[in-house]
Design a binder for these strands. Sequence first.
DNA 1: TATTGACCTCAAGTTAAGTTGAGGTTTTAT
DNA 2: ATAAAACCTCAACTTAACTTGAGGTCAATA
Lengths: 153, 153
Amino acid sequence: MTKENPAGAPPLLPIGVIARRSGVAVSTIHFYESRGLITSVRTEGNQRRYAPVVLRYIAVIKVAQRTGIPLEEIREALRRYPPGSKLSAAQWKTLASEWRDDLDERIKRLTRLRDELNQCIGCGCLSLEDCPLRNPGDSLGSKGPGARILERP
Amino acid sequence: MTKENPAGAPPLLPIGVIARRSGVAVSTIHFYESRGLITSVRTEGNQRRYAPVVLRYIAVIKVAQRTGIPLEEIREALRRYPPGSKLSAAQWKTLASEWRDDLDERIKRLTRLRDELNQCIGCGCLSLEDCPLRNPGDSLGSKGPGARILERP
DNA sequence: TATTGACCTCAAGTTAAGTTGAGGTTTTAT
DNA sequence: ATAAAACCTCAACTTAACTTGAGGTCAATA
């Protein structure tokens, strides 16, 4: 029986260990925590201790990011389950399916764009009226300042 | 014969007209010019006047952006031709082909990712050792601060 | 002629996703 | 008991691609 830990529960990990094992920087973990993506408890000395499951959380976050989901949305998705909960296989399946659909949509858009581009390489007009490339149709929501996220309108 | 214009050349346009016809904000045109993507001449009164071809330039820029090419690269690509030059059909073909290939590569990466995700939805392990999702293989170049461009490693 | 609308410059703000650094506290190893 | 390694907080910086705003000039119109 360890001291800071009720019987049976796996031991809590300090941030350095999480960083090493997950492959992300300590500062990133701080950042994720500040954004509510992961949680920790504190020692008497105010140092963070993480349940091992956060390694899984970080893995999930990274995968979601690779598919192009912004952190904010990832947080919302994770929020659906109690913070720091076990994140079961079923839950992962749900999340991953949503993200896959999202990714699929993105791929479709890009593929359509590529086809249009191919067409247009033949014609070369870029005419405002005729060219499909010039009439995005959907995806015309570029408002406000800030970095433009490439493809995800 | 107009005054500011040698015989035969099409008349130069003020920035407001370019903005209206191209669909981008005046501030954006300023910005593109400051980044060397387009050029203008000035009137005696220091106002910008654009050759009509910049409408085409802006069109090209927008298309390239849609395919995910960053402005910096777009500028480099355009730099290969004399600034403000006619941008012939052949030149457009060359640029567009490059960008299409780039886009193609991106699509392939995303497709691979989607397939891996599909696999992983079945297994749900996210194991550091086994899971293909956890071993990006390529694309591990995330260094330094600044916005992470989603997909384009 | 006077106004209004279009322009100009330059500095500063915005977003996302983090990083860097200063100044100070805790833990761990010797 | 120290010293070194690991942590902590908080503010400021970074990139990309723009936007906003202040303070001032130019040009077309009534």
